[in-house]
């Protein structure tokens, strides 16, 4: 009962916040609703007994990514009130519609397997074993980190003044 109530509250908050991100004209407020959305997603993780994931969600998405988004907004002129004029509206709309279609198709057509077992309660240890033990996921994670580093360096090189 309690979990169902929590789920529905979080779900409504997530959907409303996500719509607010799209429809608010004020970019700063849109970023704030994005933060609310991230926090509510962390709430969903808690109801799924994924406490470690919930904390990491808050730490990474709210503490780092949203803050950088807001910093980006503050550093940029003229986007603060409403979106700037853009010539690429139609291509952007096509790409967005395609992406939405693919996502909806994938989500609806995937047979989601539901486990009837009770969830592991301390999730930290199993996650660490998955990551660091033999045949663990350490190599993909490291490759992902190197990729992100390369992206950051690329962004710095592109935007640096000559």
């Amino acid at each position: 009962m309690g979990q169902a109530a929590a789920f529905w509250i979080m779900a409504v908050v997530i959907v409303v916040a996500a719509f607010a991100v799209i429809f608010l004209r004020n970019v700063f407020r849109a970023a704030l609703s994005l933060i609310l959305c991230f926090i509510a997603v962390a709430g969903i993780y808690i109801t799924l007994s994924a406490d470690f994931l919930a904390a990491v969600q808050i730490l990474v998405y709210v503490g780092a990514i949203s803050v950088l988004i807001i910093l980006g907004i503050m550093m940029t002129r003229e986007v603060q009130k409403g979106s700037p004029v853009n010539k690429m509206q139609i291509p952007a709309a096509i790409v967005a519609a395609l992406l939405l279609g693919i996502l909806v198709y994938v989500v609806t057509s995937t047979p989601w397997s539901i486990s009837s077992q009770a969830p592991l309660t301390p999730t930290t240890m199993p996650l660490a074993t998955k990551l660091f033990s033999e045949n663990g996921f350490i190599l993909p994670v490291e490759i992902g980190a190197v990729l992100l580093l390369a992206a950051i360096l690329g962004a710095i090189v592109i935007t640096r003044e000559k």
Binding site: L32, F52, I58, L59, V62, G63, S66, T124
Partner: peptide
């Protein structure tokens, strides 16, 4: 996850 929770939650104060 006590101490991780502390780090995560205290990062919200920046907002």
């Amino acid at each position: 996850i006590g101490i991780l929770y502390v780090v995560a939650v205290s990062s919200i104060a920046t907002v």
